[in-house]
Design a protein around this nucleic acid. Structure first.
Lengths: 261, 261
DNA sequence: CGAATAATTGACCGAAATCAATACGGGTGG
DNA sequence: CCACCCGTATTGATTTCGGTCAATTATTCG
């Protein structure tokens, strides 16, 4: 079992993840490994950026701040995600990037990405693809707040996190750690904390899943997916992981593997 | 004044658009120019794709269909946008792509993009950047439906379209053509057509802007931007265009120019 | 000139927000 | 060790924005 910092990059996706050689290249591009405390704002909206951040362990968010002080999350990141790879193109961001709980990140200077871009076509393409996958998530987030009611939104979000954590081996038996408060979940689903609480209670009372501070236990993945209209297509997971994410009866444990595609 | 089909690509953005030489390369990658009728679905969710589509004239949408038959737009495209460049990476899409009114498109086979990727780093980088810009739009769409009320959403959307059309010289004096019905606008802002109607009336009565079938006239860009909490940063427009989009008093007409960056 | 599509308006309803109060839990400092 | 805080969770009462239902009036276009 590899313990490399890039082990979760594009893991268990339909798009092939980096080869061992590419991992070496990517890791040699890292200037620094950093541990960030809970609630740390790693990137602030509008400030110039010259490095990108690969999330190695823990959770990070991207959020926009509204004028009235409210905030809204536009992404939650899990290990293996490049939280601000798009900053390589944009050089400054239209949102903040922060941690959810303590997080370990690998810093990749844009100058190193330039070198990769000059020398390694395939790896560059994979990096591009990662930003495109990111956009697919955004689209689904639009759909979520636009088309689902409160329970549906929360269900959809939980299904998504479950699926993505399955892919990197951080969920099992429908259960996973998620260091988010009900306020945080509200900022994802565009609900008040009060209403998130009611939804969470409803989900608990109907036996679908149990969301308590820091831990999620889904008792009926399939039913939750129906409630949240969740279809994992947009995550471009490989077949085995997608099946598990959709609550299909599993033959074996696909998500523990490291195999590509 | 150039009439090339790529004239609007990254026009008036902070990210430099293609050089004349790159335009030639891009145009030589086009296999076909096609005129699509109103309401034509160019790409259907899930079907395999081997070409990408550059919008040359007219409007196109990307939308997801909900289980209950409702649809929601996740993007509206204007000339110069690559409506499904991300399909180059994903090979199949998580949404439909269709026309709003009659549209002219240029078809670029993925095989040609492969060649560009192999031979032209800078141009490849620009293509990547275009998909990243796209994601920035998505994020703002999340924000719109998540954080704004009905009037705010419509105002924000109108401001965005105004800004983007300014950038490509398709808006002037705060007025532009927009072939969308109130139903369509509702599918963007996640509102019913009935309520869109009420919002439109309100905007008209307060003298902010006039939205009628196919045509938008903004009488007070600045006030509308305030109402929609619109800040054009996320569009990465050049300074002159951004100022005009935010309703700043303009010195001259920046959006008619073809200058880059 | 009809038929279909789009826009408009009114009456009523309901999901989630807001307001308000209480309980919990874990860390700090005296 | 306990008292105190502060963030988090929970629950109830009330309000509101936008949805739903229903009907009428433009438009547009064969």
């Amino acid at each position: 079992m590899s313990t490399s910092v890039t082990r979760n990059v594009l893991r268990n996706r339909t798009l092939a993840g980096p080869t061992p050689a590419e991992r070496v290249i990517l890791e040699s591009a890292i200037s620094e490994i950093r541990v960030l405390p809970d609630g740390h704002i790693a990137v602030r909206q509008g400030e110039p950026i010259s490095v990108s951040t690969l999330l190695v362990e823990g959770f990070m968010t991207r959020h926009v701040d509204a004028a009235d002080g409210r905030r809204h999350l536009v992404a939650v990141h899990v290990p293996g995600d490049f939280v601000d790879l798009h900053a390589y193109a944009l050089k400054q961001l239209d949102h903040d990037v922060g941690t959810l709980g303590r997080a370990t990140v690998a810093i990749v200077p844009h100058a190193e990405l330039d070198k990769i871009e000059a020398r390694h076509r395939e790896l560059t393409r994979r990096l591009w693809f990662m930003t495109v996958l990111d956009a697919a998530l955004h689209r689904q987030w639009v759909y979520r707040v636009a088309s689902l009611n409160a329970v549906g939104r929360v269900a959809h979000f939980l299904c998504e996190m479950h699926a993505r954590l399955l892919a990197i081996g951080e969920a099992s038996e429908g259960a996973f750690d998620l260091p988010m408060t009900q306020v945080d979940i509200g900022e994802v689903c565009s609900l008040t904390n009060v209403h998130v609480n009611r939804v969470v209670r409803q989900l608990r009372e109907t036996g679908l899943c149990d969301v308590r501070s820091g831990r999620v236990e889904i008792h009926d993945v399939k039913a939750l997916a129906v409630l949240g209209q969740f279809r994992p297509d947009y995550l471009y997971l490989n077949a085995a992981t997608a099946a598990a994410a959709a609550g299909e009866p599993r033959k074996e444990s696909p998500w523990t593997g490291d195999e590509r595609s």
